[in-house]
């Protein structure tokens, strides 16, 4: 059995590598097949930004072409691209020239991961528990009132929900700041005040994500639980004389969770695209906002870098879920 497990993990890892390979390659080729020349547009931008009118533009262009090997054959460029990636070199930002893309990503990534991972996990866990309770015939009236209310919240368009939250909590009651990742005056340290400050800023976007999705998780879990509660093993568990709590948790929820985890894996893409919206609305310094600004500023290298990191993050998360899943479902260890 453990050799089966090893084989399973091996297969998943190979899949992971293939996904990464394809993602990186697509990310390399697509911009090069599109019309337009990023370098020329960079130079144009730099010149129009003023300052160095006297610049010898042709020299700069040549300089860039050489630096990025754009004068070399495609295959060489491709190999260089891989080589640069391993050095975490993704070029420089055009809109924040000459800041390296890798550095900008490194600054933005922790914000996104922190906010989205926390909020998604809370929404997922809360929604799953509430949904399961909603399906459980013994749960009380409170559950039957709360959960449908949350469902309604999840149907409100996200930007509207976010605006309502900002209005209520930041404008009307002034409990949370309306945006930003931390106070501008905060000196970031690994200490308690920094932590509190960051959490305080994360509350509103986090709340928006949780409220916007908890109902969806609850709905999914409710229908999974309803169908699991109809299974023969639930009846047999009752015939054994088990306590209702035990049946609910170990026989009911435990099985209803399995498709939920699959759904989580499938929805990770949405989580990432949702990130753009959240971060833009709440002016949050994460990858989503970075991507949004990069697209608006036609910042080729930055767009490319962020997209690549997003895809890699997704691949890593899927890989992790793939690894967790056989622990949850013994039937999966193929």
């Amino acid at each position: 059995m453990s050799s089966e497990l090893a084989r399973y993990i091996g297969m998943r890892f190979i899949q992971f590598l293939v996904v990464v390979f394809i993602a990186v390659s697509v990310n390399f080729f697509i911009p090069r097949l599109l019309p337009g020349d990023p370098i020329e547009s960079l130079i144009a931008r730099l010149q129009s930004a003023g300052g160095s009118q006297e610049m010898d533009s042709q020299a700069i262009i040549d300089n860039f072409r050489e630096k990025y090997g754009l004068d070399k054959p495609m295959m060489t460029q491709y190999l260089n691209y891989w080589r640069d990636l391993f050095r975490f070199d993704m070029g420089v930002s055009l809109s924040s020239y000459p800041q390296p893309v890798s550095q900008m990503i490194r600054q933005a990534l922790p914000w996104s991961v922190g906010l989205l991972a926390t909020a998604t996990l809370i929404a997922f866990t809360l929604g799953s528990v509430l949904g399961a309770l909603l399906a459980w015939p013994r749960s009380g009236r409170i559950i039957r009132t709360i959960v449908p209310t949350l469902l309604v919240l999840s149907t409100i368009p996200f930007y509207l929900l976010a605006m309502i939250l900002i209005y209520l909590f930041a404008v009307l009651w002034r409990i949370f700041p309306p945006g930003g990742g931390a106070s501008p005056t905060l000196i970031m340290e690994w200490d308690w005040p920094s932590f509190v400050n960051i959490v305080h800023h994360g509350m509103l976007p986090g709340l928006a994500i949780v409220l916007g999705s908890v109902g969806i998780w609850a709905l999914g879990m409710r229908s999974q639980t309803v169908s699991v509660l109809g299974e023969d093993y639930i009846t047999f568990a009752e015939a054994k004389g088990l306590a209702p709590r035990r049946i609910f948790l170990r026989y009911g929820m435990r099985n209803a969770m399995l498709p939920q985890v699959t759904a989580l894996a499938l929805s990770l893409g949405h989580v990432v695209s949702g990130a753009v919206l959240v971060e833009v609305i709440f002016n949050y310094p994460g990858l989503g906002a970075l991507l949004y600004n990069a697209v608006r500023g036609q910042d080729y290298f930055l767009v490319q870098g962020v997209v690549l990191i997003l895809i890699l993050t997704l691949a890593v998360l899927l890989f992790i879920i793939d690894l967790i899943y056989p622990l949850l479902d013994p039937r999966i260890r193929r």
């Binding site: 299974e231 023969d232 093993y233 009846t235 047999f236 568990a237 009752e238 015939a239 054994k240 004389g241 088990l242 035990r246 170990r250 026989y251 435990r254 099985n255 399995l258 949850l328 479902d329 013994p330 039937r331």
Partner: peptide, 30 residues
């Protein structure tokens, strides 16, 4: 009373075991 005084071997015993629990744990539970 269930199981101690009167026990059921249900129709569809094939699907009466919890798929995510080891057989021993399911006996222990009872």
């Amino acid at each position: 009373t269930r199981l101690r005084d009167i026990a059921l071997v249900p129709q569809g015993a094939m699907s009466s075991l919890n798929p995510v629990m080891r057989v021993g744990d399911q006996i222990a539970d009872a």
